[in-house]
Each structure stands twice: as C-alpha cells, then as structure tokens.
Design a protein around this nucleic acid. Structure first.
Lengths: 210, 210
DNA sequence: AGATTTTTGTAGCATCTGCCACAAAATTAT
DNA sequence: ATAATTTTGTGGCAGATGCTACAAAAATCT
C-alpha cells in the first residue's frame, strides 16, 4: 500500500524511500493549477513541474482531483490564513477593510506567483464529470463571504455599523469586489493600479462618523 | 468552397442548400460555451446542441475557435448592447450606475440562460495553445472598463463628479464589482440577493450632493 | 543473507479530443 | 438530361488525456 501521508512523513519501517520532497512537489503542482486551472493543467505538465513521474504522483496524491484539492487547501493556508486572521482581529472595521483589501491587492499581484486568486480562477471552466471540484472550490469562496459576514456582524455589535445593516448583501458586495480584483489582476492591471481599485472597497461601508 | 457567410445568407446559385438555421445553431453553440466555457465545450456536445454533424459545423463556422469568437460577439450584442447604450445615455450618473447594475443583476441571473456573464466566465481556464481566445475575450472585458471610464469622464464634464476623480481607478472598481457579480451569480445567489449586492456599486461614487 | 515492502521508471492502456476525407444527396445552371 | 456545386452523414485519423501494469531498485526486518 502506498504512503499518501502528509508531512511529517509517517514512520516508515520498510520499503524504498521516496526520493522527492512531498511538500515541494505539492507546491509545484499548486503553481501549475494556479496558473492554468484544474483541467488545462495536464498530468504530464504537473509531473514535469513536480519533477516526478506519473506513478509517483498517483501513489503519493491519489489522483488529479485529490492533488488539486490538497493544493487548494495548501494555497489558502499559505496565502490567506494570516490576512484573514488579521482582518478578523482588527477592531476598527474601516481599517480592517482597508488593510485587508490593500494586502489582497498585493497578494493577487505578487511578482513571485501567478496573478489572481487560485480559489476564484482555477475552477471556473469545469467539464460535467468534474463538478465535485467546482463544488469544493465554491465552498472555499463561500467561506470567504462568511468571513466578511462575521466581521460585519462584529462591526454592528461594536456600534461601528448601523443595527439595520443588511449583513448578507454587504458581505456579498465585499466578496464581489475581491473576486473582481482577481480577474483584473489576471487581465494585466499593475500592482499600484490594483491597490487603488481595491481601496474602493471602503466605500461599501457607510460614511465613517468621526 | 463552403459558405461561411452570416445572415442574411448570401445569394446561392448552386449546390445543396443548408438544412439548418445558421443563427439558431450559433445561438445553441453560444449556450453551450456560456455554460461550460471554451475548452470543456466539446465539439461533440456542441454538435448535439446545434443539431448538426461536425463537418457541417466546420464548413459553416470554420473551427471551434472561430465559432466561439462569433458566439461571444453575438452574446455581447444580444445581451449587453442595449444596457450599455442606456447607461451611456442616462444623464444622471447616479441613476446611470444604479440602473445599469440593477439590470446587470437581472441579466446575470435570467432564468432562461446560464448564470453569469459569458465574457467574464467562459475563457478563464485556457490551455497554452488557445491564448488567442483568452486574449480576445480579455479585450471585451477591457472594453467594458473603457465604457465605465467614458461615462465617468462625462460625469466629470457634467459637474456631477469632482474634477480630480481618478477615472481609471473608479472604472476599475465598477468593473471589479460587475465581474464579481458574475461569479456570485454562478455560485448560486438568488436574483433578489444579487440585485441588493449590485446596488452597492453606487457607493463607489462619492456621496451625492442633493 | 534472504524475505518483505515500498518507490521508481518504462511503457502502454482505453478514451476522448479537434478535425477531416469521402462519397452520397440535393440543389441550380446549361 | 447532364454537369457543376455545395451540404450531408459515416467513419476515422493523429494526438492528447488520465491513469495503471509491471518489473527493477532500494530500503528495512528477521
């Protein structure tokens, strides 16, 4: 039975040791999926980027779908966990939104990675027999919207937003803004331009009463 | 030489007449591309939807790429030409934005068509050897942003917006909002929810001085 | 040393893809 | 009628896809 365990590698007792780094291979796969999307990323391209052959890929990650989902989770943890926590922890909701969208613009156009958010862009054009992939990634997008909603509710509780704020709609507006930024990032906007666009997210909040 | 002409059909003199309606077939293809995206829409599925066989498709439309581009043009003309013209003609920019985004939400979730905008969603995950498709569709997205920019400039000229308005950034913000709406439309938001979200686009404008 | 276990690379499977060759069919021109 | 022209459906090509069978290789366990 092949060893599909993640880091730290399980305590092996017998067998030929794996001769590549599972995490590095996962990250290489992530970059391919991120840039191309789920279906255009072929197993052969993935193998090339990961520096392994197909049987090693399948023994280690199961299949293409599982590899993609693991890469997506890895992506979220690596790039969005910290900004998300900071966003939830910042007590001033105006600063929370401003900072989060500023940092988002930076992440979406980081020179070291593909442009735009993998969760938004990598599973849009999906054939019928891979809907499980589309559904799983959609859940991640909905989780982001839920994060916005939770922070808005906190803002209401803190007296920074009106009691009658329509939480779902406002969360949807922030989510639309963020998702739209990904598309513009991929469409070639400059980092400085994207940051300026992102700052319009603050306007979704009611005017701050100083 | 096959007849690839569009409607009205060119004056035929000889040859077996085509036994399907070119425009209806194009519309059927549009719906498949719209729902699935460029690459997941297979020739066989397109043929089934269009009610013709592959040789007829190729004789009439050239190849898959040309069919897609023609469908995309047809899409824009059919669904967005009128709202765009109304948007540009409305003298009050606040009403122009409000009406345009309200109507957009309706179009993006029309019960008779796939959810979301074809221009935003149908050419996201594209393999390397079909970049011409991605580029062409990107141009359509940029044209929408240019439309926003032109309307904003008009608003400045009309004294409805400050002289120092950053046109490019504000146009980018409207564009991000609109593109984000497409993703949320596909993610299952209800029509009434999407309309509420869309109305936050007005907040991108400075507060109206009544 | 020998048995056991796991990973490795080669090589190839079945299936799907976009596309087209070909001949029969259906029309108009002479 | 016959020739000319265009569209039709059948059938299939070359190449790519996700995935796997298989045996050699490399480690540990007894």
């Amino acid at each position: 039975m092949p060893n599909t365990k993640k880091t730290p590698k399980n305590i092996r007792s017998k067998g030929r040791p794996r001769c590549f780094d599972r995490d590095k291979a996962l990250f290489a796969a992530l970059e391919v999926f991120w840039q191309r999307g789920y279906e255009p990323a072929s197993i052969s391209e993935l193998c090339k980027a990961m520096g392994i052959n197909a049987p090693s890929l399948y023994a280690t990650f199961g299949n293409k779908a599982k590899l993609f989902l693991e890469a997506a989770t890895f992506y979220e943890e690596t790039y969005w966990d910290a900004p998300g926590k900071k966003f939830m922890a910042e007590p001033d909701i105006y600063k929370a939104i401003g900072d989060f969208f500023a940092e988002s613009a930076r992440i979406l156009l980081s020179p070291d990675t593909p442009c735009g958010c993998m969760v938004v862009l990598a599973a849009v054009n999906i054939s019928e027999d891979a809907q499980e992939i589309a559904d799983a990634i959609r859940q991640l997008r909905l989780a982001t919207k839920d994060m916005f909603a939770a922070r808005i509710r906190q803002g209401i509780e803190d007296g920074q937003l009106p009691q009658d704020t329509d939480v779902a709609s406002m969360a949807g507006a922030f989510n639309a803004m963020l998702e739209g930024l990904s598309i513009q990032a991929r469409d070639g906007l400059s980092q400085s331009q994207l940051e300026k666009v992102a700052q319009y997210a603050i306007h979704i909040l009611p005017d701050k009463i100083v």
